[in-house]
């Protein structure tokens, strides 16, 4: 297993927002984490990343315990984070945003075709290439989403945590983002995807975790979620 989360608990002050989350992601897998608003999907990603400190539990990445490490160490271990709010640096240019994603400012093995470089990012995101020197804050929502994904790829992660990438985007942009995630996954990057757009999520993931209040309610295949009304009614529909 690439990532093994066991019995993860996280509190925000007195509220217990993750109550024993279990999940696993294999090498090269794209797994979706679905559930209604406020169930703790974002908190799960943040807890894995070290953006919030879990109160107990285990997060193993490539067999190494990483729970409780600060985010920069988690990132260096090989996990990239694409947050819900995108969080690009508005004053920095598109190029500088991407450059900050490079760990230690130096790309290892730049000639390896599997290594993410600026050129490769621009190849995948031609819209960003057109805006190389524009300030990140001046991009459209979809472009910012692309930039946020591109920036995390510059760190050459083995696993990408992606939080609601299609939120607030036009249908065309949603499709583009979807396709980019598919390409990235095909290129060998594992993905844990939180996504409200069920169609997008099920078209990408083979395996799905369904979250109910603060826990993983069940695990299913994308096929099961598609065909099983009860499952969807229980975990997804309002």
């Amino acid at each position: 297993m690439l990532l093994e989360v066991k019995d993860l608990n996280t509190h925000y002050g007195p509220s217990h927002v993750l109550q024993g989350v279990h999940l696993e992601i294999g090498e090269g897998e794209l797994v979706a984490l679905l559930g209604r608003n406020g169930m703790g999907k974002s908190t799960t990603l943040k807890s894995i990343m070290g953006m919030v400190k879990p109160t107990s539990g285990s997060v193993k990445f490539e067999g190494q315990e990483i729970v409780g490490l600060p985010p920069y160490k988690v990132a260096r271990a090989g996990i990239g984070y694409v947050p819900e709010e995108r969080r690009i640096f508005p004053e920095l240019s598109v190029l500088d945003n991407l450059m900050l994603g490079i760990k230690d400012g130096k790309i290892r093995n730049p000639n390896d075709p599997n290594t993410w470089t600026i050129e490769r990012i621009f190849h995948h995101f031609p819209k960003l290439a057109e805006r190389t020197h524009q300030a990140g804050g001046r991009l459209s929502g979809g472009e910012q989403q692309m930039l946020s994904i591109g920036r995390s790829l510059m760190g050459n992660p083995k696993l990408l945590l992606v939080d609601e990438p299609s939120e607030g985007l036009s249908p065309i942009m949603v499709q583009e983002v979807r396709n980019v995630l598919e390409e990235i996954n095909k290129a060998g990057v594992s993905v844990l995807l939180v996504e409200h757009n069920l169609k997008v999520a099920l078209s990408l993931a083979k395996r799905v975790y369904l979250m109910s209040k603060a826990c993983i309610g069940c695990q299913a295949s994308a096929q099961e979620v598609r065909s099983n009304h009860e499952l969807r009614a229980k975990y997804l529909e309002a």
Binding site: M49, P70, A75, P83, F89, L92, N97, L100, S152
Partner: peptide, 17 residues
């Protein structure tokens, strides 16, 4: 550039390694 980025969002800078 890291400093300027951190002025707007230091946690995100941290999450980039």
């Amino acid at each position: 550039k890291i400093v300027r980025a951190a002025v707007s969002d230091r946690d995100m800078v941290n999450a980039l390694g």
